[in-house]
Amino acid sequence: MRGRPIGALNEARIRKKEENVNIVACVKQVPDTEAQIKVKADGSGIEEGGIKWVMNPYDEYGVEEALRLKEKKGGEVTVVSLGPARVIETIRTALAMGADKGIHIQDAAFDNADAYTTALALAAAIKPLNADIIFCGQRAIDGDQGQVGAILADMLDIPHVAVVTKLEYTDGAIKATRPIEGAQILIEAKLPCLITAQKGLNEPRYASLPGIMKAKKKPVDVKNAASLGVTPSVNMKVVKFTPPPARAAGKIIGGDDPALKAKELARLLREEAKVI
């Protein structure tokens, strides 16, 4: 039963530091991990009906880190998201957590956008903000590509520190910890830079009710391809979705003699399942 320090979220009490950091957090709306995914009959995508949409969990770490940075140093957090109308919900979630304003890139031209096009749109929206630091999730749990952050950093021509589990901010620079196989590496980077967040970076907060109510009134700028000056180009196309094969039924080994049953089990594991 631990709790964060009282009032950590109370925006009114946050002391504004002179060093105002301009922070951007990119979020993607994805189906809830428990949602039932049905592939459309023609394999072109998934059935969207009945799906509960949530913020990509890795992006949530990014938003939380953005808010903590703001609370420590002062500044402003802008959330940026690309997607259809329903995406506004996810933007509002980030605003309820404490982000200040949102940019919703919504244009049918971006439907089925690949990572490159997505980054292109995000870059166009983010560039005018002159961000000091940009947070993305290390990947999205739906497409699982893990590309947008890296491409976006490249397009903005800023350093990219990937899969971060710990972040320290010192004026004008950051120190980030990134786990690698059996070890950690400590990376320093100058601002502006882009961080992709990994699980462990923080525990995202639960939005307070006044936060939820205020979020309804926070500004969200809606942009389309034209207003961003971007021409969507499709370089990569998903050809077909196929559901994973249904799990085969379990097998019960019958018989009365435990020794025989054990033998049969060993045989099956070796010959049929090929695991031993």
């Binding site: 009032g7 809830d32 428990e34 039932q36």
Partner: peptide, 29 residues
């Protein structure tokens, strides 16, 4: 509601109830 400061286990429970309408977070379907 006001402070959003409460046991983290409960935060998970609430999210499960929000997203899947049950405290365990098992798919609502």
């Amino acid at each position: 509601l006001t402070e959003a400061d409460f046991p983290p286990e409960l935060q998970l429970t609430f999210r499960n109830m929000e997203n899947n309408s049950n405290p365990w977070g098992i798919g609502s379907h």
